[in-house]
Amino acid sequence: NQASVVANQLIPINTALTLVMMRSEVVTPVGIPADDIPRLVSMQVNRAVPLGTTLMPDMVKGYP
């Protein structure tokens, strides 16, 4: 099973992602692959992302 990117904390709308905000976890449904975490750094979320939420491609501005 492939690990996905999961919010490690509440991420407010328009926040630029940092490594501490994300963790990898095997979840269903599958979200953004954990391998993409380095690419996500400094990209902004377009909505508030609660703790434990799987990051989906449509939540991150400019992804992929």
Rank of each mutant, 00 (worst) to 15 (best):
N1F: 14
M56N: 06
I11C: 03
L17M: 08
P12V: 07
V20P: 12
I13H: 09
L19P: 10
I11T: 01
I37N: 01
D58I: 15
I11M: 04
P57C: 05
R39F: 10
V45I: 06
M56H: 09
M21F: 05
S24W: 10
K61C: 04
T54I: 10
I13W: 08
M59K: 01
D35W: 06
A3Y: 09
L17A: 00
M59A: 07
L51R: 13
A3R: 11
L55P: 00
G62T: 06
V6F: 01
V6D: 00
V30C: 06
R47W: 05
P33L: 08
R47I: 12
Y63P: 04
P50S: 09
V60M: 05
P38C: 04
T15I: 08
N46G: 07
P29E: 06
Y63S: 06
L19W: 14
P12E: 09
T28S: 15
I32P: 00
V41I: 11
T28M: 15
V30W: 10
M22I: 11
L10D: 13
I11Q: 02
N14S: 08
E25V: 14
R39Q: 14
D36I: 07
G62S: 14
G62A: 08
L40F: 02
T54N: 02
S24T: 11
M22E: 02
P12W: 04
L51E: 13
V60E: 01
A34R: 06
T15V: 09
M22Y: 02
I11E: 02
R23Q: 05
I37E: 03
I13P: 10
Q9R: 08
V49G: 02
P29D: 05
P29W: 03
D58G: 14
P38D: 11
S24N: 08
V26M: 10
V27Q: 04
G52R: 04
Q9W: 07
P64W: 06
P50G: 14
D36R: 13
N1S: 11
P57I: 06
A16Y: 13
N46S: 15
A16T: 08
D58M: 08
V60P: 02
Y63A: 05
M59Q: 04
Q44A: 14
D36L: 15
N8V: 08
V49I: 12
M43K: 11
N14C: 04
P57E: 09
V30I: 14
A16D: 09
M21Y: 06
V60I: 12
A3G: 09
R47Q: 10
N46E: 08
G62F: 06
S42D: 15
T18A: 07
A3W: 11
V30G: 05
P12T: 08
A7M: 05
D35M: 11
V49H: 02
S42M: 15
